[in-house]
Design a protein around this nucleic acid. Structure first.
Lengths: 100, 100
DNA sequence: ACATAATATTCCTTGACAGGAATATGCATT
DNA sequence: AATGCATATTCCTGTCAAGGAATATTATGT
């Protein structure tokens, strides 16, 4: 599953958002998101397959955390469009410059 | 369809990439991408529903172009993670500072 | 009005994926 | 080794979306 497909699911986006708080055991995500444990586990598997999260085993627990790399990839994909949407501001800037 | 679902499809990402060159009739996208016309038409519909592209009718042609707004939305979603992946550089910076 | 070009829509089939329920695996403690 | 907790996996089912083929729509030119 690609990173684009990975973030297409709202539950997975929720998981990622919660993981911004830092490394967490799967069970904590289950509690926080109030979702069935197998559900969360499957989404974590998908996120891991996409490289968005890392896992670390700590005894019986599995600690998940964000993996920065694919986010940079997404950033790279978005970059060529950035100049595009910021052109609104560019136009504003041009206008202001023209008003000098 | 959300913007996340919209960009989850590789064909739609291709369409968006081609549209960076500027406003284009649907037919030109069909030629450029070498895909069946109904296929492209359906994807354009999806992109339009997600707000990623604008349409303008010019005679028999329909001219499509990028709509910046949702890209800014995606940018906004990505922003909280940016500090995260750039922490690699932060660590490098810390290391360099520590080496002063 | 008719023919034609450009594009959109419908119908169908197929594959992918999410959710629920049940079960399996791995680790720790006694 | 047996129990219990944390997590993963399997199986099933329903849903949704993509692709292909055929057809419909809209606008232009004659």
């Amino acid at each position: 599953m690609s990173i684009f497909n990975a973030i297409a699911d709202p539950v997975r986006r929720d998981i990622l958002a919660v993981l911004r708080a830092g490394e967490q055991p799967a069970g904590h995500l289950v509690e926080t998101l109030n979702l069935p444990q197998p559900n969360v586990s499957k989404h974590l598997k998908a996120l891991h397959a996409a490289g968005l999260v890392k896992v670390r085993t700590d005894g019986p627990r599995r600690l998940y955390s964000l993996d920065p790399a694919p986010f940079a990839e997404l950033e790279a994909w978005l970059a060529p469009y950035r100049s595009f949407w910021s052109s609104k501001f560019d136009e504003l800037g041009d206008h202001l410059n023209r008003s000098d």
